[in-house]
Amino acid sequence: MKHIISVLVENKPGVLARIAGLFSARGYNITSLAVSETLDSETSYMTMVVEAEDERVLEQIKKQLNKLIDVITVTDFTKREHVERELILVKVNCSTKDKEKLETVLRKFLGKLIQHKENIAIIEAVGEQEQIKNLLESLKPFGIRELVRTGRLAIAST
């Protein structure tokens, strides 16, 4: 099962390597990772989606993260009310005559066309996983050339 975990860390060199090292050394799977400074430039948030076969593994991941000196707090959103989003950029094939069709799809699935030139359209979308999945599905017929995603971000509701 996938879980979103948000890790507040000291904003210091080597911290990312510590976390990456922990995951590889202990054989944990990480699906996505987003890192950025918080309001306080001395700390960063690392929001990660981890895969854990059971509760025990998830607990171990959280405990091992907490053990790192540079980790300040670990928040597991599995059982916490939260809002989550992911941003994606997609490059699809789109000739001038297909443009209208594309725009209909984008209106329906909340995508935004941000560039169109030389038969290539670049689309931006922000949403929950379901929304993004649906958008990508409906873009498939155009021919997706490239896809980049930020990974999921989460913030607690209260």
Partner: peptide, 11 residues
Amino acid sequence: IDPASISKNVK
């Protein structure tokens, strides 16, 4: 002393 040692191998 180490929470990560607990329930790592046995429940």
